[in-house]
Design a protein around this nucleic acid. Structure first.
Length: 573
DNA sequence: GCCGTTTTCGGCCCGACTGTTTTCAGTCG
């Protein structure tokens, strides 16, 4: 899949056009095209072959031609031209908060500055303040922005920020005079990474809420402190915005601040078609306010049912809602088991008893104990003898335990040559076999793909764990033809994992959706190495929801007996 | 550059805030 490559070029073209001062709607066309290609669950190359590129929303004849050009030549002549006109280093300027395309262009054209270092020096020498429309505040803000970039406080994994957001909600509920309160923004949509925390509140005494908020113990800096909007930075450097709105505006404001931006734009466009104006204060016909107290009213005003936040990315949810085919998303409460947990038998830190007890506290009824296989020495891979001991221990445990059942499993290493790290007669003893690539990340796409394909084709394997190997903010997915992997899983009736560990989330939303569309079942596993980490199971469910998965797409919704039956079926009994 | 129960041109979502300005452009979400 080269979708990402095409999207990235379009995104850069959009930014370069923006700096050039081109027609903003042309810029938006490239941005929208990039976003829609990125969200595509199909292979853009295949759509190109079939002449179906213009079926992608936002792709017309012109952009279809440009996509073909990228696929054929690896680049785009327009992009190469733009790079000659506008130094591509300037794209970095746009990452500085407060510095947009207009100022970037002015700084480059009048001062010839094109690197971040030169920009910093120019600020210190007060060369920027002399430019028209800029002043000392501008310099100060650019310097602050540069510092911000240096500290690399960009997007953080959802799993890292969510506990903080929940603690803040709890704090405000307890200490502030709040009536309704909710997290909004990308956290509410459960995006895999988030930049800041948005909290929406209704209150009769907004002033007090804000006073309480700025006294939250982890606040390190107050950025803005007003009656309706207050922004602070809290301890690990995350910005938190709290907005207090009138109860009559709650629904409109919640929809507005939940986003995504692309989704909101579509909703408002639908509003315009109906002669309505929709903003964070409500729904308006002319000057008359006709609703906005509840979120449902916003959707109803444009003829839609309520759309779950996880779907609000303008990835087809609006069309689906219009046609009455929104998925009935898998619910967080429907998850009954965690398929991938490490115990003391390999590099985990918890005993079988501790794992089961914690699972019970989470309301789960089964856990797959999948320790590493023998060859993975660095992770305490389990030798065959110890593996059989573990099997007996699990059987013994299950005889005693009524509420939580453990499943004898293994995370079996897929070796460099595509063979598995236990012999077949051992694999046959293991009830749940998830295969995974842990070594040889530098291999070619052909090699890596054939390893994954070989594992999924093996009759005793049930699923492929963390299929792409990516680590959020640390490691890119390794070269893998995921389309082939998904096809293989579909052909053999195998599952693909949604690894719920907070910095993996692998498969991600788009890939999991592609798997679902291919008829592949998804299996959520936390990869917990400490029983407490099983609490992250909801992150995997969130990915499944963002992937449009329904209950039957996710094997974790099965009961213990049903799941065992699936495991046997997947091996052709 | 896209797109059409306002169809092949002329629109394209909406408002707040900031900083620089005397009425507004740029940026952001």
């Amino acid at each position: 899949m080269r979708n990402q490559e095409v999207a990235e070029i379009f995104r850069r073209v959009a930014a370069l056009l923006e700096i050039k001062g081109e027609n903003p709607y042309r810029v938006r066309a490239y941005q929208r095209a990039a976003q829609n290609i990125e969200a595509l669950t199909q292979d853009v190359e295949e759509l190109a072959r079939r002449g179906q590129l213009t079926r992608i929303p936002g792709i017309g004849a012109d952009l279809a031609g440009k996509i073909k050009e990228i696929l054929e030549t690896g680049t785009l002549s327009l992009y190469e031209e733009l790079k000659r006109e506008v130094p591509p280093e300037l794209l970095k300027f746009l990452e500085i908060p407060g510095l947009g395309p207009k100022k970037a262009k002015l700084i480059y054209e009048t001062l010839g500055i094109k690197t971040l270092e030169e920009l910093e020096r120019a600020c210190r020498e007060h060369k920027i303040a002399r430019l028209p429309g800029m002043g000392y505040k501008t310099e100060e803000n650019i310097l602050k922005g540069l510092q911000f970039l240096k500290e690399k406080v960009g997007r953080r994994p959802l799993g890292e920020v969510l506990p903080l957001a929940e603690d803040l909600l709890e704090y405000l509920r307890k200490k502030g005079p709040v009536e309704r309160i909710s997290v909004a923004g990308s956290i509410r949509r459960r995006r895999e990474t988030v930049k800041d925390i948005d909290i929406l509140v209704t209150s009769k005494r907004p002033h007090e809420v804000m006073e309480v908020f700025v006294r939250y113990p982890r606040v390190i800096e107050v950025l803005a402190h007003g009656e309706t909007k207050t922004s602070v930075r809290v301890k690990p450097g995350i910005q938190v915005d709290v907005r207090v709105v009138d109860p009559e505006c709650w629904g409109a404001a919640l929809a507005y601040f939940t986003g995504s931006k692309a989704h909101n734009i579509r909703i408002r466009e639908l509003g315009v078609q109906r002669g309505l104006k929709i903003n964070e204060y409500g729904i308006f016909r002319g000057n008359e306010r006709i609703g906005g107290k509840e979120e449902e009213e916003v959707f109803a005003a444009v003829g839609l049912p309520w759309i779950p936040p996880e779907l609000r990315e303008d990835r087809g949810e609006i069309e689906a809602a219009q046609e009455g085919r929104l998925p009935r998303l898998v619910e967080y409460e429907e998850i009954r088991g965690d398929a991938h947990v490490h115990s003391k038998y390999s590099d985990g830190h918890s005993s079988l008893e501790e794992i089961a007890a914690f699972a019970e506290s989470l309301g789960l009824s089964w856990v797959g104990i999948c320790d590493h296989s023998q060859g993975l020495k660095v992770a305490g891979g389990v030798p065959v003898e110890a593996l059989m001991e573990k099997k007996r221990a699990i059987e013994e445990f299950n005889r005693r335990s009524k509420r939580v059942k453990l499943i004898f499993g293994a995370e079996v290493d897929i070796r460099s040559d595509g063979t598995l790290d236990y012999p077949d007669e051992v694999l046959a003893e293991i009830d749940l076999v998830i295969a995974a690539i842990h070594t040889g990340f530098q291999q070619s796409e052909e090699q890596l793909t054939s390893r994954a394909v070989a594992a999924l084709s093996h009759p005793l394997v049930h699923a492929l764990a963390h299929p792409t190997g990516r680590l959020l903010g640390e490691r890119e997915p390794y070269a893998l033809d995921l389309k082939k992997v998904i096809e293989t899983a579909a052909r053999h009736g195998k599952a693909l994992e949604i690894n719920a560990f907070y910095n993996r989330l692998d498969l991600n939303d788009v890939n999991a959706r592609a798997a679902k569309e291919a008829g592949v079942k998804l299996l959520i596993g936390t990869d917990a190495h400490l029983a407490d980490q099983m609490a992250q199971i909801h992150l995997g469910t969130a990915v499944a929801r963002r992937a449009w998965c329904e209950k039957e797409d996710v094997l974790n919704t099965l009961s213990y007996e049903e799941f065992l039956a699936w495991l046997r079926r997947a091996r052709g009994k």
